[in-house]
Structures are given as structure tokens and as C-alpha cells.
């Protein structure tokens, strides 16, 4: 990443971090309704992948979707209004945290059932190719989805039809409430897909420069129609599976260890160390993000709740 790209990615990571920390507080204050999954600690993958996509590229995500939606261009204010169930939400308060959709920015959607989003990305890729466009589809999923049958079905079909899909596995080592070792003897997702000949590999997902470079290396071939790729990003979610998860199934990382692993802190160290960024400009990223979040909170509180009749009127598209 050059200096400008680094600034853009760092700003996005701070936006996601600030947004999600505030969402956690709003959840505890019962201003955010429903089930919330935070991606704090995994922001680098969303920012480095989506930072290299075009608006026309389709992105799909799962239940831990806030970062992907923001990184693909969704308005923070409208995302927060959605989480607060308000009329100005991205989905008019109909979807909430697990079902964010922002067609305008190519965020075609988040789905709440683990792995259910993977074949959807194949369909977008098929449609984009049928329409003669060089856009790609990208789907984010966790390592837990790899054990779902549709993962194997989708990888096979994407490889068979050489669909322009980038599969991004955020491997945080935990599938819901239990470690990888309880789910599969195969440690690396790249080994699961090895027979299909997909391009890609495994990177440290908390090393944002490494994620950026890997995506930059894969995307042109996917875009050119040379077939799908899978990028496995090893990462760590700092929070539990959901907000309120007692998180007794794993040991908390120490604060010293977290300073080493935090993708934001790492990028800041790397970029100031090699002269891309000036240490003086660092506080501005966090401040700007936190200010934006507070403006979003005020805007969402101002937005009325939707008319309840909307729930029955939107059953069918007309």
C-alpha cells in the first residue's frame, strides 16, 4: 500500500472499530435491538479487500457484517439507523444487523445462516458474466462455514464454471462457540480446496499490508475470468461470538498480546516505521471516526421508527 492507500485503509479500520465499539455500548443500553455480532479485531480484512473493489463488484457477507458493509461504502449513519430499527436505516428497519443490504454501493447483502451467502455470490458472478461485465463477486465467511455442505458444493461449481468469485475466509479459529479442532482435522482452509485448483492462499489477516498485497495479486485474474480464488485470512475476533456471549470457551488475550496483534496498531506501527505516515497524523484517524459515529448516533435517534404496516406490505415485491 502506498501512503494514500494506507490512509484510506486505516481510516476505514478506525471507522469500523469506532462503529462497533459504539454498537456494543448501544446494545447494552438497549438502544440497539436484537442479536449483534462484532468483528473487532478483524477490521483489516474488510478494509483491505473492499478497499480494492469497484462499486459494481458485488459483496456478500454473513452474520458478522458491519465491517464489510462499511468498507464497501455503506453510510455509517444509515447502518446505525438500521441497527436501531429506524426508518432511515439501510433496510428501513426491516433487516437489522444480520441482514444489511446496500445495493447502491454493491453490498448485496448479509445473510444470517452460516455459509448461506456463498452460493449467492456465485449467482452474482454468473449474472455479471452473462451481462458481459468485468465485475467480480466477493463473499466473506468464517472458518465455521467451511464445514457446511454448501461450501464444497459452491467451490466445486465456481471452479467448474470458472466464475469470477473471490472467496474470503476470515479464519478466526472459532466456529461460534468452539475451536477449529472440535470441527475439523484440517487446519487450513486452503488445504480443503486444494484439489479444485483455486488461486490464492493463506495470509496473516491482521497484517493489513499482507492482505492488501494478496488481494492485489489475486483480483486481476479473477476479474479477467480466469476462475475463482480463495484467500484465507488468519485473524482474531476480540469479542465473543455475539454481544452478551460469556465467552467461556477460550482464554482472553492479554492486553500486551493484543497490542501485538491488533491490526490497527500493527498497521500504524508499520506505516510510521517505514515513513508512509507521520506519527502526528495518527490521532486524527481515530478522532474523525469517533466523531462520525457520534453524529450517526444523533441522526439515528432522530429517525422515527418505521410504520408497522410496512412489515406486511413488503412480503412480495411488486
Amino acid at each position: 500500500m502506498d501512503a494514500e492507500q494506507t490512509r484510506a485503509v486505516l481510516a476505514m479500520m478506525w471507522r469500523i472499530r469506532a462503529f462497533e465499539e459504539r454498537v456494543g455500548q448501544l446494545k447494552r443500553a438497549d438502544e440497539v435491538h436484537g442479536l449483534i455480532h462484532l468483528s473487532i479485531g478483524q477490521e483489516g480484512v474488510a478494509a483491505a479487500v473492499c478497499g480494492q473493489l469497484r462499486t459494481a463488484d458485488a459483496v456478500y457477507s454473513g452474520h458478522r457484517a458491519h465491517g464489510h458493509a462499511l468498507a464497501k461504502g455503506a453510510s455509517m449513519a444509515r447502518a446505525l439507523a438500521e441497527l436501531m430499527g429506524r426508518r432511515d436505516g439501510l433496510c428501513r428497519g426491516m433487516g437489522g444487523s444480520m441482514h444489511l443490504v446496500d445495493v447502491e454501493h454493491g453490498f448485496l447483502g448479509a445473510t444470517g445462516v452460516v455459509g448461506g451467502n456463498i452460493p449467492l455470490a456465485l449467482g452474482s458472478a454468473l449474472a455479471l458474466r452473462a451481462a458481459g461485465r468485468d465485475a467480480v463477486a466477493v463473499v466473506f465467511f468464517g472458518d465455521g462455514a467451511v464445514q457446511a455442505g454448501l461450501f464444497a458444493e459452491s467451490v466445486n461449481l465456481a471452479a467448474l464454471w470458472r466464475l469470477p468469485v473471490l472467496l474470503v475466509c476470515e479464519n478466526n479459529g472459532f466456529a461460534e462457540f468452539s475451536p477449529r479442532s472440535a470441527h475439523t482435522p484440517v487446519e487450513r482452509v486452503r488445504d480443503v480446496v486444494a484439489p479444485f485448483g483455486l488461486a490464492g492462499g493463506t495470509v496473516d489477516g491482521n497484517d493489513v499490508d499482507a492482505v492488501w498485497d494478496a488481494v492485489a495479486g489475486l483480483l486481476p485474474a479473477v476479474r479477467a475470468g480466469e476462475g475463482p480464488a480463495l484467500l484465507e485470512c488468519l485473524t482474531h475476533r476480540l469479542r465473543g461470538h455475539y454481544e452478551g456471549d460469556p465467552d467461556r470457551y477460550r482464554e482472553a488475550v492479554s492486553s500486551a498480546e493484543w497490542r501485538e496483534r491488533d491490526p490497527i496498531a500493527r498497521l500504524q506501527r508499520a506505516a510510521t516505521g517505514d515513513g508512509r505516515l507521520d506519527p502526528d497524523e495518527l490521532p486524527g484517524f481515530e478522532r474523525a471516526a469517533r466523531d462520525e459515529v457520534e453524529r450517526a448516533v444523533l441522526a439515528a435517534r432522530e429517525s422515527p421508527f418505521p410504520d408497522a404496516a410496512l412489515a406486511a406490505s413488503l412480503v412480495y415485491g411488486r
Binding site: L108, P119, L120, G123, A130, L150, S154
Partner: peptide
Amino acid sequence: SETAEIGMAVGAALAG
């Protein structure tokens, strides 16, 4: 691969 097949159709429909 019914799941991938039908899921892919959903995605294609979402994309127009």
C-alpha cells in the same frame, strides 16, 4: 448440488 444450484439462482436474481 441443490444448495449451490438454488443459492446461485438466488444470487443471479439479486443481480438482475
